[in-house]
Design a protein around this nucleic acid. Structure first.
Length: 368
DNA sequence: TCTGGGGTCCTAGGACCC
DNA sequence: TCTGGGGTCCTAGGACCC
């Protein structure tokens, strides 16, 4: 366990966080080398006049102000000459799998590693339990990983090194692009102490504001705050967790167990708002059928159905219902989704509909 | 120029039972 | 007549992340 110790012998085993640089845009440039050096924006169906947002912008596009999550229309306004491309899931999945396989095959000073996949384009890499940290130079291994990923996939990545996953995850951003950066227990406060709490992985805009209302603005202030106050104000679980974040403490281990999804859902923002009940019901049926296909691929029945409705004014409500018994029957599931519409009071035309199916636990339960 | 889509986890309140 | 707690299940919503 990172940060632990036996007697006076430190057991801190460094962890790596590997994050591909501008992943989606980089994959597109690999396919079309003539795009290299141009502002490339990947998002939606690649049509900047549609309702959709930026998934990834190349560094050239970022230099012109384009950011992930920005509406494509805004991106086009900032950067009318950018190349807009549709999100091509299957291609990224293949590339991602190749990256992860490369990481899993990497040997750290001759020893195998554990890899915990965090998403398409990032993963933690750590020594297996029992390895002796002193025998394993993390900086050299980080350079090796960057070279091996580049050789196998043509993609560049950045690597963060930490005494735990939290530190490694944050360090990666300091190393971007194409770099390696290390944060340790010893350097945590020098690196992070004066930064806003928002710089922590797990603190978003809302929690930053709530902490600020308590007079806590910086990471150091969070670390030296009264954990009991945080527990009382934010919650018995989350309060102490934020306190640990502030101190750079994270005792979780790199978990190589394959991810098992709890649920599948699909949602869709319509290019034109839906006005009639008949239209809305028809779309719920269509979306629900797709989600049924998703859980069929998973091979587990659903025990809970959820519906999400967002109106023209961006008012969003969610309704859900536990089923009498788990089922994979499309008719039952689709009807259940449609029935939830009755629990939504509709005031305005509908902008988005979403259906979500929560699956029963796999045999043996979730391992993490 | 209005604000995507895929997820996870935590909290809080009401219903219901003892 | 008024007044208890505790525990669990269910649902809605909030917050975060990529």
């Amino acid at each position: 366990m990172a940060g632990g110790s036996i007697g006076s012998v430190p057991l801190s085993t460094p962890v790596l966080h590997v994050d591909l640089d501008q992943f989606l845009a980089a994959v597109e440039v690999l396919r079309r080398p003539e795009l290299a050096g141009l502002p490339v924006v990947v998002g939606g169906r690649g049509d900047p006049t549609e309702r959709a947002v930026v998934s990834t912008a190349s560094y050239e596009a970022r230099a012109l102000g384009v950011r992930s999550g920005m509406p494509l229309r805004s991106a086009a306004k900032k950067c009318p000459d950018a190349v807009f491309l549709p999100v091509d899931f299957p291609v990224y999945e293949v590339k991602s799998a190749l990256v992860m396989a490369t990481l899993r095959a990497a040997l750290w000073s001759g020893d195998p590693v554990d890899v915990e996949v965090l998403g398409w384009d990032e993963a933690f890499v750590g020594l297996r339990p029992g390895a002796v940290a002193a025998d394993h130079d993390p900086e050299a291994f980080a350079d090796q990983v960057r070279a091996e990923v580049l050789a196998a996939t043509g993609l560049h990545c950045s690597v963060g090194i930490g005494d735990n996953k939290l530190q490694a995850k944050i360090a990666t951003d300091f190393g971007k692009p194409r770099g390696v950066y290390r944060i340790s227990d010893a350097t945590w406060f020098a690196e992070m102490g004066q930064r806003p709490t928002r710089a922590l992985w797990g603190v978003g805009a809302k929690i930053q504001k709530r902490l600020a209302d308590l007079g806590i603005h910086t990471v150091e202030q969070l670390a030296t705050s009264d954990a009991r106050v945080l527990a009382a104000e934010i919650g018995p679980t989350m309060g102490p967790w934020y306190h640990r974040l502030g101190r750079g403490v994270d005792t979780s281990v790199v978990d190589p167990t394959p991810w098992v999804p709890r649920a599948h859902g699909r949602e869709e923002t319509f290019q034109t708002d839906l006005e009639t009940d008949a239209e809305i019901e028809q779309e719920v049926r269509r979306i629900a059928l797709r989600v049924v296909a998703d859980i069929d691929a998973e091979g587990r029945p659903a025990w809970r159905v959820g519906l999400k409705v967002r109106d023209r004014a961006f008012q969003t409500v969610q309704r859900s219902r536990k089923l009498p018994e788990p089922t994979r029957d499309p008719e039952v599931l689709v009807d259940a989704a449609v029935a939830l519409l009755a629990k939504v009071e509709r005031r305005r035309p509908v902008r988005l509909l979403g259906v979500r199916l929560e699956m029963v636990e796999p045999e043996g339960g979730y391992e993490r």
